[in-house]
Design a protein around this nucleic acid. Structure first.
Lengths: 194, 194
DNA sequence: GTGTCAAAACCGACCAGCCGGTATGTCGCA
DNA sequence: TGCGACATACCGGCTGGTCGGTTTTGACAC
């Protein structure tokens, strides 16, 4: 049921429209027209407009979590692993910029229940990420004068903000941006001389 | 006309509701009820719901710009001035958290024309901020291996993200958060050893 | 191959409700 | 008596969602 061409087309069209016009400014009618299907077909695969929106969140959260776990499973020093994670999440956010835009812009349009689920799953990601920083702190590699949660937030803010300024058509390549932002973050993690 | 108690109350109620429920999920009826006025009174002071939303943007942009210019006019080294600006914008964003939440969440709900004006005024702020970093680079204080725009974005991302995690009821005080985030930013600006 | 038939997929006209906005009226005051 | 500041009833349009009906699909018998 999940991989019907209808469901796929509708979701793609929805991501596209939500990211440009916004969720509230996009009617179900516009979505199905853009997807080349009918309303009946859409409501056969999605319970509601909210359900469709949540589908976007679900995909993105699953993907990023899988990527995170895959990298965490690899061998390497804290520095290497953390760097790899930062670069990966930035690159994949750029690869899925439209989804990311919707993700950060439309949480409050989800039903309360769904918002809670998104929060929980984001926190899982956050905690694994913060845990890695904590390991680095234990090894004396990262500063401890600033709360762990703030260090993590300091990085997520960059990912969050990407869709506000990055353009795929711009001068900066995806991987360069990823390396530079990661570099800035890691630089700010260095312990301060006492 | 601007400082009627009706206009003030409506705006305050709107900020409150927009920041919690979102612009699209808040009806004009709810706003006027929360403000204790009638729809007629509101439409006497605001042309449209869009106009009301823009009022929030206008206030915030004017305030931040004025604060920026005031600090820029003061004497001091680049480090001191930049640090003061960072701390100030973070603190005032916390002081006006509700407005900031609306600001970052609802731009795409503004009319195209108004969106353009907001963009222009944000860019003015951005350019002055980036200009200061550039001065620091010229003095050899800040790294030059990363595009200026990205350095600026790296800071704005933290301000942007504040409303996602900061709670006034939480353990961290406003000024401490401001100092710590500024410290992280300035740390990442340091030139890298070659 | 072909007829049968049930289930799944899909269609699209329709609806109730809400929402932003307005038209018209009232009231106090200069 | 004119005018700005509100109040209130009202409207047209649009939106998410539904529902009865039709077509397509696929398993099975013959």
């Amino acid at each position: 049921m999940k991989d019907s061409h209808v469901a796929v087309d509708v979701k793609r069209a929805a991501v596209d429209l939500f990211s440009t016009r916004g969720y509230a400014n996009t009617s179900v009618q516009q979505i199905v027209e853009a997807a080349g299907v009918t309303k009946g077909a859409m409501y056969h695969y999605f319970e509601s407009k909210d359900d469709l929106l949540f589908g976007i969140y679900d995909s993105l959260l699953s993907m990023q979590k899988a990527r995170l776990d895959e990298i965490l499973a690899r061998e390497g020093s804290v520095d290497e692993v953390l760097g790899a994670i930062c670069i990966d999440v930035i690159e994949s956010s750029i690869d899925h910029m439209a989804e990311a835009t919707v993700f950060f812009r439309s949480v409050h349009m989800l039903s309360a229940e769904r918002q809670r689920e998104v929060t929980v799953r984001r926190r899982e990601y956050h905690d694994e990420f913060a845990g890695l920083i904590e390991r680095g702190q234990a090894e004396g590699r990262y500063r401890t004068d600033i709360p762990l949660a703030m260090l993590a937030a300091h990085f997520f803010s960059d990912v969050h903000y990407l869709s506000q300024w990055y353009s795929p058509d711009g001068p900066e390549s995806k991987s360069l941006v990823a390396r530079q932002l990661t570099e800035l973050f890691l630089a700010s993690l260095s312990p301060v001389a006492t």
